[in-house]
Amino acid sequence: MKIDIVSVFPEYFDVLNLSLFGKAQAKGLIEVHAHNLRDWTHDVHHSVDDTPVGGGAGMVMKPAVWAECLDELLGLEPADATPDAAVDTATDTAAGKPVLIFPNPSAPLFTQRDATELSHADHLLFGCGRYEGYDARIPAYYRAQGVNVREYSIGDYVLNGGEVATSVMLEAITRLIPGFMGNPESIVEESYTGEGALLEHRQYTKPAQWRGLNVPDVLLSGDHGKVDRFRRDEALTRTNDIRPDLIEQLGCKALDKADRKTLMALGWEVSGEHPRRRGK
């Protein structure tokens, strides 16, 4: 996978040379290039922003600078927008074309499903906004040129720029590339993973007793069936307590008898298509 990142602080991404990400680059699984947006400016101050049209606080990143940068990285010639050329982003990820991604706190939430889909792309290009953000015509223009453009938020909060959000998304995406993780089985039961995603059960290591706190006895029993059931029940319970919205997305037909028993004890009806809170 080729990864291009555009930022006014490209040195921020030196961190990608560490740990598994660094090893993946050394193995040739991913190729990362961080670009300084100011390299595409032409004024003495290397300005990338201007005041917002209509007034207001802060500064907005200019479309002309971004366009010169993105045209070069995407191999496009300048052209007027042609809206009819916009791609269907739901089907175009694996077509060998680049995916252009802008972190944006006002965009749809980035999920594990998005990470899984994007892990199959050949080329990701991230544009890191700053200040009050980027001119809205930038993603609109590239969609109209037929580019697969995504805008994502990583949560209900605002950061100073898109660099942190880009790092978060990159880690979620690249760890799903075959060969990235040392043990691929480690991602199978993780939170939010797969159909019927739940929060992961709690994990423990040795010693079995530490500062008056004990590992649950069942995990020491050697009975793999009981261990699996304990972990599944804990995943259901934790999800019920923390993210009940994920319980509501489960398919009742995919639940086994023990799952149904656990959910019913937690106050769910499991006779329909999806679980629902008793009394709702």
Score class of each variant (00 low, 15 high):
222 G>F: 08
16 L>D: 02
54 G>Y: 05
101 I>E: 04
76 L>W: 03
139 P>Y: 05
206 K>D: 03
244 P>S: 12
135 D>V: 02
216 P>Y: 09
277 R>F: 01
32 V>I: 11
14 D>I: 05
44 V>N: 11
98 P>M: 09
62 K>Y: 00
25 Q>N: 00
240 N>R: 02
165 A>E: 06
249 Q>E: 14
147 V>R: 02
192 Y>F: 15
144 A>T: 02
57 A>T: 08
173 I>H: 12
182 G>P: 06
256 D>F: 01
249 Q>S: 15
49 D>K: 00
198 L>M: 11
231 R>A: 11
268 W>G: 04
175 R>H: 12
123 H>M: 07
207 P>M: 02
120 H>Y: 05
214 N>L: 14
227 V>G: 00
108 P>G: 13
76 L>I: 03
28 G>I: 02
191 S>H: 01
39 D>E: 04
119 S>I: 06
72 E>G: 15
220 L>C: 07
117 E>C: 10
39 D>I: 01
104 N>R: 12
178 P>E: 01
79 A>L: 04
124 L>R: 02
196 G>M: 12
21 F>P: 01
121 A>R: 12
160 N>D: 11
91 T>Q: 10
102 F>K: 01
19 S>F: 07
22 G>Y: 06
21 F>E: 04
157 Y>Q: 14
154 I>F: 03
83 P>E: 00
215 V>C: 10
201 H>F: 15
228 D>R: 15
22 G>M: 04
61 M>L: 02
93 T>A: 15
1 M>T: 15
102 F>I: 03
273 E>L: 10
103 P>S: 01
10 P>K: 12
201 H>D: 15
7 S>Q: 02
256 D>T: 07
202 R>A: 08
135 D>G: 11
178 P>K: 07
263 L>S: 06
242 I>H: 08
91 T>M: 08
101 I>T: 01
33 H>E: 14
255 L>G: 09
244 P>G: 08
225 G>T: 14
184 P>L: 07
62 K>W: 02
20 L>D: 03
226 K>N: 12
2 K>Q: 09
128 C>H: 07
23 K>P: 10
237 T>E: 13
83 P>A: 03
256 D>S: 06
209 Q>P: 11
241 D>C: 11
26 A>N: 09
258 A>M: 13
194 G>H: 08
2 K>R: 15
7 S>L: 03
197 A>G: 13
156 D>F: 07
